[in-house]
Design a protein around this nucleic acid. Structure first.
Length: 742
DNA sequence: ACTGTTCCTCTTTTT
DNA sequence: GAGGAACAGT
């Protein structure tokens, strides 16, 4: 209970249980009151889950754990209390990525920088990485000076000043400001050090430097800190997470007790072995061996497909089979199944397919509710009513709906505001009075400004009804009408969302209260009753588990992601591998990995190679499925004696006859191979059935001649599509191609 | 000032 | 293939 503890907890070993039980024990033994425990997580979902479970263990609703939340939400609370110490007012607004980008863009353009070559996005990334490392403009290391064409540090400083002027913060600032307050005001720090008697941290491997400093400061007094993490599940390096924080823990907290949790209560031995086999490819690990007492179960299944569409179709059919109950298994509900993809654009193929077959699905972690256009517009109106000086909100909605205020009118407003050192709303009022604008624009702008005043007046009244006011704002501004007149197919959905927004307001005291919370808490997780298959990214899946998991798109370049490897080399590859580990370990009973030979990327067909991670799967724990026929996509129909002549010709030409598949199937029958031979499920060394100068046909690229043969990979000069590398099983001898109705 | 067109880049993952 | 920016036309 007392002193520093580091829990190294593998996937499915009961991390959350350990944390919640610890909290409950602290409370039950009277060591701390609920409000004296600081427990931080990364996601709202994790925080909610912990609250729920603590409540359940305590045998009542989890009232009064005010300091159990995400790093960000805890920091908002702290920062609202002490905002003035960093030059903010306590009602500061939290900018989302979109606001942030628009602001940066303004700054970049004001500096006459070509934002084509140096996009604001890039600057945002640079600044973010600095904030993750807790570097303020004034103490940037000299080496960073060249960032963003040498203008980075200057623009960073400008950006920070502008944020203070706007009484706003971005996500990174939430931590950064709190850390600076603690560093500069020892009295305040000590007050919190005493107040938080125990500190608990979930997913410790995801902490960045700023969060680490924050924790070290807060736990610096009594050192009652308990961190739970798993270095093998560190998948947020790209946003500044430092696995090094785990390694540093024992140094910073001497005498720390290190506990390893290695018994897995989630998955079958085959699944665990497959996951272990993959993660073993990483050099930099603390090293944990998961074990389980669960029954053997099914092997991990592996299957290749012709293209992404067929992959989606096959997965759909498998889901239906699991629903009915297959291979001697009890029927599974759709809630028990999930499709985990590397990149969100992969979701599309599944959504398309599921829509056509009427399979209910839910996308988790898609565009969040509050990130939607209409919600952000509506909130900008609310913000403007609550804080008249919110220039970003003003700019967003002055001309939404269209009020005849274009670039020219905007410039005039800006000019006037800057001249008088006033917010845009007041500045534009002055400009109007000075007759600086005429015509329709002037009339509409006057009406807009008058409306704002009136709404503010209503909002300030003690008997104000904020829900009615919100509806009034949306109606009188013409915003609702704008969508009602909109003929695009999205319009009804947007109106629906606006209604939902107004409904969400009911749970708050007033508009202010709503705005303070909304940017951090609005997940779009409506609890639907209907059973649905979940589709999400691997990142979003961390911490979840499903009886049946599909892992599609295991192809070089996609997974592991080319970009990750280009940008971060071996480190990037290892993070991708951890992602694979996270994916496999989400599965309790059935884990199905798949890849496709062709995929639509940027609207163009590309031939894909199976992922290197597939080679790393220990074959003793993998069941390589016979590929479905190329047309039927139907597993059963692929039996040799059932296939039609046409299918036989096609399949043998480009699938069953390919050395890779032959090896796969041969290997699939083998048992108990040694460690050395564990991989090569898909084989790159076998001799190809083709040789240089052979003329071949590929369904997407057409005819071409083979330039080089490299294992089962062919380099082919296509007549129309240029030179490409293709896996042998996806081409046919040109002579056979005439029979194929591509 | 607004609308429609073409061309361009681009996609990893998120609090 | 989609969304944004630049351009042209109304």
């Amino acid at each position: 209970m007392d002193g520093p503890v580091l829990m190294l907890a593998g996937a499915g070993t009961g991390k959350t249980k350990a944390l919640t039980t610890r909290i409950v024990h602290l409370l039950n033994t009277g060591r701390a009151q609920p409000n004296e425990i600081l427990a931080v997580t990364f996601t709202n979902k994790a925080a909610r889950e912990m609250k729920l479970r603590v409540g359940r263990l305590m045998g009542g609703p989890a009232e009064g754990m005010p300091w159990l939340g995400t790093f960000h939400s805890v920091c908002v609370k702290l920062l609202r209390r002490h905002a003035e110490l960093v030059g903010l007012k306590s009602n500061f607004t939290i900018l989302d990525t979109d606001d942030q980008l628009r602001l940066l863009k303004q700054l970049v353009q004001a500096e006459q920088i070509d934002d084509k070559r140096w996009p604001a996005r890039m600057l945002a990334g640079v600044i973010d990485s600095w904030k993750n490392r807790a570097w303020l403009p004034e103490n940037l290391p000299a080496g960073e000076g060249s960032a963003y064409n040498g203008r980075g540090p200057d623009l960073y400083a400008q950006y920070q000043r502008r944020l203070i002027e706007l009484n706003a913060v971005d996500f990174g600032d939430l931590l950064l400001h709190v850390v600076s307050i603690f560093q500069k005001h020892d009295d305040i720090l000590q007050q919190y050090q005493r107040w938080f008697k125990y500190v608990l941290v979930d997913e410790y491997q995801d902490t960045n430097v700023a969060q680490y400093l924050w924790l070290r400061l807060l736990a610096g007094g009594h050192k009652n800190i308990c961190c739970v993490g798993d270095d093998d599940q560190s998948i947020y390096g790209w946003r500044g997470a430092e696995v090094g924080n785990i390694l540093r823990f024992e140094k910073d907290f001497p005498g720390a007790k290190v506990v390893r949790l290695e018994q897995n209560y989630r998955s079958t031995p085959h699944i665990l072995a497959a996951a272990s086999g993959v993660i073993a490819g990483n050099e930099n690990r603390l090293g944990k061996e998961l074990w389980t007492e669960a029954e053997e179960g099914e092997k991990v299944r592996l299957i290749g497909h012709w293209d992404g569409e067929e992959e989606a179709r096959w997965v759909g059919e498998e889901i239906e089979a699991l629903q009915r109950g297959t291979r001697g298994r009890e029927p599974l509900g759709l809630d028990s199944m999930a499709i985990l993809v590397r990149a969100s654009h992969q979701m599309r193929a599944f959504e398309d397919r599921f829509l056509t077959i009427g399979m209910p699905y839910r996308v988790i972690g898609g565009p969040r509710f509050y990130e939607r256009l209409e919600i952000r517009d509506a909130m900008a109106y609310f913000r403007l009513v609550v804080s008249p000086e919110d220039d970003l909100a003003f700019e967003r909605v002055v001309n939404t709906p269209k009020r005849g205020l274009g670039d020219k009118a905007r410039q005039k407003m800006q000019l006037s505001a800057r001249e008088h050192f006033l917010p845009l709303a007041e500045g534009s009022r002055l400009m109007l009075e000075a007759k600086g604008l005429g015509g329709k624009g002037a009339v509409e702008l006057t009406r807009f400004l008058d409306n704002l005043e009136r709404w503010r007046g209503l909002n300030a009244r003690p008997d104000a009804n904020h829900v009615e006011l919100a509806e009034m704002i949306l109606d009188e501004s013409g915003y609702t009408e704008m969508w009602q007149n909109d003929k695009t197919p999205e319009a009804p959905g947007r109106l629906e969302n606006l209604k939902e927004l107004v409904k969400a307001l009911e749970q708050f005291e007033n508009l202010q209260g709503f705005l303070e919370h909304v940017s951090l808490i609005m997940d779009n997780e409506s609890d639907e009753a209907e059973e649905k298959v979940s589709i999400m990214t691997l990142h979003a899946a961390k911490g979840l588990e499903f009886p049946a998991v599909f892992l599609p798109g295991w192809e070089e370049g996609l997974f592991p992601s080319q970009r990750s490897m280009d940008e971060s080399g071996l480190k990037g590859l290892e993070e991708e591998r951890r992602l694979a580990y996270v994916g496999i370990t989400r599965a309790e009973e059935v884990c199905t990995i798949s890849f496709a030979g062709n995929r639509l990327v940027y609207g163009q067909w590309q031939s894909q190679m199976p992922s290197r991670f597939i080679d790393e799967l220990p074959e003793a724990h993998v069941d390589v499925l016979t590929p479905p026929g190329l047309y039927g996509g139907n597993f059963g129909a692929a039996q040799p004696n059932v296939r039609s002549n046409l299918e036989t010709a096609v399949s043998e030409a480009n699938v069953y006859n390919s050395p890779g598949w032959r090896r796969m199937q041969a290997n699939a029958g083998k048992r108990g191979t040694n460690q050395q031979q564990k991989n090569q499920v898909i084989d790159a060394v076998a001799v190809s059935a083709y040789s240089v100068d052979d003329r071949v046909f590929h369904s997407k690229f057409g005819y071409g001649n083979i330039l080089a043969v490299e294992g089962d990979k062919l380099e082919i000069a296509f007549e129309k599509a240029g030179t490409k590398k293709v896996v042998a099983r996806f081409v046919v001898n040109a002579a056979d191609a005439g029979d194929i109705p591509f």
